[in-house]
Amino acid sequence: MIRFKTLMIGLLMSMSLMSTVAHSQDSTSSQQIKPKVIFFDVNETLLDLGNVGKSVSEALGGRDELVPYWFTTMLHYSLVGNVTGEYNSFAEIGIASLEMIANQQNIKLTPEEARTAVLTPFRDLAPHKDVVEGLKKLRAMGYTMITLTNSSDAGIAAQLKNSNLAQYFDGSLTVQNLKTFKPDLKVYEWAQKEMNVAPEDAMLIAAHAWDLAGADKAGWKTAFIMRPGKALYPLAAKPDLIGRDLIEIANQLEASAK
């Protein structure tokens, strides 16, 4: 009987502790999130890279399975540049990565063909279907909205113009000014200074876990858009907001701000 009572007391204590933890988690999730400036990643987050993927695949002899490898290679060597202090534009790295993969796979590809395959579609991308509505909703909520990309100044200007998204943003910041790529913490720190905003009043919306990891370490709020094929990095902090598209993120921000 004494053993039974001991077990019951232990169970009740465990249930009480679990309730306390759950309540604490609920309180955290219900905290108000209202940044003063929202920064946006662009490629894949706002703009659909389908045309780029198709162009790269054609350059690689129709090898669709090599397209994700090309993109990760491009990201990989942008970080190699960060570490070694050797800066090349994101477009240049993309072209070089395409040439590299073609050589690895014994696919004939001239430097001119690689350049055309990357640059031509990258400058003329369509927004994801949810983006315009999501941006309109955030604009109506009064947020200052800035693009923050690994692209060049000329590259993002062309992308926003051709996608007809420039009207929704208050400005654009690119790593060209620092000659180092996200997720280097220097990029986020520089961006917040440029916008005269404290880290806790900045938010990054992105479809890339590596980008959000950098913003989180810089002290920013973060929001993850779960674009197809994207996933969170289990060893990084969980984003403040997670949505299937920009509309869901905007709705969550609106609810949180009340």
Rank of each mutant, 00 (worst) to 15 (best):
M1Y: 08
K5M: 12
L7K: 11
M8W: 10
I9Q: 10
L12M: 14
S14Q: 05
M18R: 07
M18H: 06
T20L: 15
V21I: 15
S27H: 13
S30P: 00
Q31L: 13
Q32I: 14
K36C: 02
F40Y: 11
D41K: 03
E44Y: 04
T45V: 07
T45K: 08
D48S: 14
K54H: 09
S55Y: 01
S55L: 02
V56C: 02
A59K: 02
G61I: 02
D64Y: 01
E65Q: 14
L66M: 12
L66P: 07
Y69E: 15
W70I: 03
L75D: 08
L75S: 11
S78N: 08
L79S: 11
V80C: 11
G85R: 09
E86Q: 14
F90C: 09
F90N: 08
A91C: 04
A91Y: 11
G94P: 10
I95N: 05
I95G: 04
S97T: 06
L98T: 12
E99D: 06
I101P: 12
I101T: 10
N103A: 15
N106G: 05
I107F: 05
I107S: 04
K108R: 12
K108S: 15
L109Y: 08
T110I: 04
T110G: 01
E112R: 12
E113T: 03
R115Y: 12
A117H: 07
V118E: 06
V118G: 06
L119S: 13
T120Y: 12
F122C: 12
F122T: 15
R123K: 15
L125S: 07
A126C: 01
A126E: 15
P127V: 04
H128I: 02
D130T: 10
D130Q: 07
V132A: 12
E133A: 15
G134V: 02
L135V: 02
L135A: 02
K136D: 11
A140M: 06
T149Y: 00
S151N: 14
S151C: 05
S152H: 01
D153C: 00
D153H: 10
A157V: 10
K161R: 14
N164L: 11
N164C: 04
L165R: 03
A166I: 10
A166S: 14
Q167L: 08
Y168A: 05
Y168Q: 04
S172R: 07
V175I: 14
V175N: 10
K179V: 09
K179T: 12
T180Y: 10
V187G: 07
V187Y: 10
V187R: 10
Y188E: 04
E189T: 13
K193S: 13
K193V: 07
N196T: 10
A198T: 15
D201V: 04
M203D: 02
A206K: 01
A207V: 03
G219S: 04
W220A: 01
T222K: 01
T222M: 01
F224D: 05
M226P: 00
A236M: 07
A236W: 00
A237G: 08
A237S: 14
K238H: 10
P239V: 06
D240Y: 06
I242C: 00
I242E: 10
G243F: 03
D245N: 15
E248Y: 03
N251S: 11
E254L: 09
S256V: 05
S256R: 11
